[in-house]
Amino acid sequence: MKWIIVTGESRGVGKAIAREILMEGTYGVIGISRSKGAEVEDLKQLGGEHFVHLTYDLENVEGIKSLYLQQLKRLGVIHGFVNNSAWAYDDIISNLRVDPLEKMFRINVLSPMHLTKYVIRDMLLNKTEGSIVHISSISAHTGYKGLSMYASTKGAIEAFSKNTAREWGARGIRSNCVIPGFMNTAMSASLTDEQKERIYRRNAMKKETAMASVVRTVLFLLSDQSSSITGTGIHVDNGTI
């Protein structure tokens, strides 16, 4: 089986990406999230043997090595990695607290970097010309009050992705980012309708970003259709310009 790792496949964007990959049928999906499995029972129904869920908390950076050696490597060859899991600590900067900030960097930056390390090692070992896709956020490009800390994790990932592309391009390994605008998911649930309206007014199309459009862009970047695209980001944000 050719596998694609999707982190945060238990809901929202990650679940929609996992579903779409399974529907296409070329690849199996290894989902990584804290969920025990009940949340992804429908993916199991859909994918059967093509879907494996691994319960793992990405706050644990140190455990990634054994996650790879004990579990991921044994499943088979990794062809793609979608870094989708994220946790948002939103507040204005004058209230910044180090504990949640550190937790967010572990989940959004350090663990994805460590996973990338082992994904690249796997690709080297198997001579796989694989694709890595990071889900960034429009907040790394357009300022929003209260999102500076969260946005900085996405800025870090975008820089990491660009340099990954440069470093490993000669081995056929690609790395790109998808940069979504605001979508209605659990992550943005705490916003009031008025706040959402104000955010939507800032984009050319005056509405929320369609999750399906984000998902299709991720699948495009995973596929050979994007074989000459690396080290870049695709904005899927209704024109937040």
């Binding site: 796997d122 070992l125 081995r171």
Partner: peptide, 13 residues
């Protein structure tokens, strides 16, 4: 450095 990385993963495997 890329070949050394490859040597690392092959030896590890």
């Amino acid at each position: 450095s890329l070949m050394l990385a490859e040597l690392t993963v092959r030896v590890e495997s």
